[in-house]
């Protein structure tokens, strides 16, 4: 039996290159081995391929002409339509054409278009006010449908733009999405309403947070490096942001909240519109952004109750950068197990 292989072209639009840097940190045998394991042929990648200049242009032209079949087009970075709608904030070097022109043209040939990173998905950081480069996403302009390809765009396979959001996304999100597409396993029902694969987007960054006991008792960090919950004062949006961020390790064992700083909701459209990322916005002392689907009154009542019940250990550790009060030891009978 002939193995079915998948051709993949990766282009960097208005990007920082961070999504590529993230995926180069994929664990195991590395990204190239992972692509090979998924029977993916890399037609060209700006950071990895030998082909340069005229050789690279020939690859792009061949895809554009339909001579080389393109199964997956990966776009990393915002689509820049400025200044004044000209697209000249990014010319694809050596081609005399704007990147937005190339993206639209190549997308029409692609089986599936994949937005890697929040920039390509929704516009991302370059879209922040005053949006100097007139940035947009592939199929969303912030949270609004549209973007460079338009709301109605579908790849040849019928899928809308697949949005591996994140700034930068976990390398696993990228590799697993591409591998699932190559295996024919990713279907429209596997995507949420913004095109994000549900395998990571059906979770919240809050799930599995190492600070969960502090969250439960509303025992809050007051300054950077404190061990307490980052939500009340330090801007954490993990209860509102999608991603299985705290259910898998970043660079081995890390995550944003484990690293001691707020989740800034980087998987969400328009996350860049926030002002004062590192301070929780409050009205009358109450955080504005509460957990996505929790009735506010319930949250406030539970918070008040749990604050009043906070053990001294949790209260003191929350405002320290190391454990100052270890878990207590209960008196136990032989055969009962546990600390004792």
């Amino acid at each position: 039996m002939t193995e079915r292989r998948t051709s993949l072209l990766w282009l960097q639009a208005g990007s920082c290159g961070g999504c590529t840097m993230s995926v180069l940190g994929h664990d195991g045998a590395g990204i190239f081995a992972a692509l090979e394991a998924a029977a993916i042929d890399l037609l060209w990648h700006p950071s990895a391929s030998e082909a340069t200049g005229a050789e690279a242009r020939a690859i792009l032209e061949s895809v554009e002409a339909g001579t080389t079949a393109l199964d997956v087009l990966v776009i990393e970075g915002s689509i820049l339509t400025g200044p004044n709608g000209s697209g000249r904030c990014q010319m694809l070097a050596g081609t005399g054409r704007t990147m937005v022109d190339w993206v639209r043209s190549l997308s029409a040939r692609a089986g599936v278009v994949v937005a890697v990173g929040t920039c390509a998905a929704f516009g991302g950081i370059p879209m922040a006010e005053p949006d100097p480069a007139e940035a947009t996403g592939l199929q969303f302009d912030g949270a609004d449908r549209g973007g460079a390809l338009g709301a109605g765009f579908r790849g040849r396979s019928g899928l809308p733009v697949v949005a591996v959001a994140g700034c930068a996304p976990h390398p696993g999100w990228i590799v697993e999405t591409l591998s699932a597409i190559a295996a024919g396993e990713l279907e429209a029902g596997d995507l949420d309403g913004l095109g994000r694969p549900k395998f990571f987007a059906d979770h919240l960054a809050h799930h599995g947070c190492s600070r969960n006991e502090f969250y439960e008792f509303k025992a809050s960090a007051e300054r950077a490096s404190d061990r307490g919950c980052l939500m009340e004062h330090l801007g954490c949006k993990a209860t509102q942001a999608v991603g299985d961020c705290n259910q898998r390790g970043w660079n081995g064992s890390g995550s944003c909240t484990d690293g001691g700083y707020a989740c800034i909701g980087c998987t969400s459209p328009a996350f860049e519109t926030a002002r004062g990322f590192l301070t929780t916005p409050k009205i009358a002392g109450i955080p504005v952004g509460l957990p996505l689907d929790m009735p506010k009154a319930w949250f406030m009542a539970l918070a008040a109750l749990s604050k009043s019940a906070t053990p001294k250990r949790v209260r003191l550790n929350a405002v320290s950068d190391h454990v100052v009060v270890p878990p207590g030891r209960a008196k136990r009978s032989p055969g009962e197990g546990g600390e004792g």
Binding site: M21, L24, A168, G249, W250, N251, G252, G254, G259, Y261
Partner: peptide
């Protein structure tokens, strides 16, 4: 590539993740 990924596990310990960490502050690390 595996050696590079191993090196960047330093970021998991100090900076939460790489790239784009918020661990680096005027007063130290978080």
């Amino acid at each position: 590539l595996p050696a590079r990924a191993r090196l960047l596990e330093i970021m998991g310990l100090i900076a939460g993740k790489w790239p784009h960490s918020l661990a680096f502050r005027p007063g130290g690390t978080t």
